[in-house]
Design a protein around this nucleic acid. Structure first.
Lengths: 155, 155
DNA sequence: CCTTGATTTAGAGTAAGCTCCAATGTACAT
DNA sequence: ATGTACATTGGAGCTTACTCTAAATCAAGG
């Protein structure tokens, strides 16, 4: 099965601009062209796009994705480099998840604070309560992320 | 306690350029200046920066952070809007965490695949094995995210 | 007073990742 | 064969979030 650039755009949710841009950046070195110069994508190209989306989702910039593709083109001699690359990606993603979980905790604190504030009709009144102060201490007693955060003013 | 822009940069890890940029963009509307026009930051400003970093970490763009700050300036009349804003942030972050967990699964699959490939000295040999095909099915049987992904070619 | 280093401003420059345009060519149904 | 939709290229333009520059001013020590 083969696809035009428009069909691939449809299938992947990427724009035709983006597909051409990726090619220009060396992310899709295997896309064929027919006699008239039109791009003809096959299943492998779609798989590559899926891989690219995956790497992008790990936070990898386009230049580094190209490097992966260049490693792939080197063949089996680059297997251990590719393994190493995926291990680094795993680390990056794991760290990002951890960071987001901490952020989620802070946002949930804000939600509780604002729920009480809406109830009371005032933020100042609520942010000094025993309950909120205690929550604040639990969350921000950890000095790792902006220790001065979330002071008395409840910004 | 008060701080110069350089001290705040040191404290927060942001550059002095960034601090001035944030002010220009309306993210720090409370920073004072002394008689000579030099910025003088206080604890509240540091707290605001911490809040800004938190919102940024949720993926919120700077223009929307400014909108939050404008809501804050409106006082208690905007409490429920601010609550709503934090609820949306929570959704965004929760979804991002979910997405990253799926990505983590894919990356871990790649790691296993490449571990085997390095062992065998060949990617093609390994990607057709019973074990890998089974793992692939488990991970990518779900048609939500690029159903064509990870075909026979193991890109 | 003088020097050194930090700070001020307006505005220009940068990097990433697209996004679009103009002019031209291709595919195909009527 | 002609209209319509879709494709090609090079290159310009856009957005976000900084990042830096230049020229002037300020702060503090000797």
């Amino acid at each position: 099965m083969s696809y035009s650039i428009g069909q691939v755009a449809e299938k992947t949710g990427l724009s035709t601009y983006t597909l051409r841009y990726y090619e220009k950046e060396g992310l899709l070195p295997f896309v064929q062209k027919n006699a008239s110069g039109l791009r003809v994508y096959n299943e492998d190209d779609i798989n590559w796009l899926s891989m690219i989306e995956c790497l992008k989702a790990t936070g990898m910039p386009i230049k580094e994705i190209r490097q992966y593709i260049e490693l792939y083109k080197e063949g089996d001699s680059s297997l251990s480099k590719r393994l190493e690359l995926f291990r680094k990606r795993k680390e990056t993603v794991a760290q990002e998840i951890e960071k987001l979980q901490k952020i989620l905790g802070k946002v949930e604190f804000k939600i509780r604070l604002y729920e009480k504030a809406v109830e009371a009709g005032s933020l100042e009144a609520v942010s000094q309560t025993e309950e909120i102060q205690q929550l604040r201490d639990e969350l921000f007693g950890d000095p790792n992320y902006f220790p001065e955060a979330e002071g008395k003013k409840s910004v």
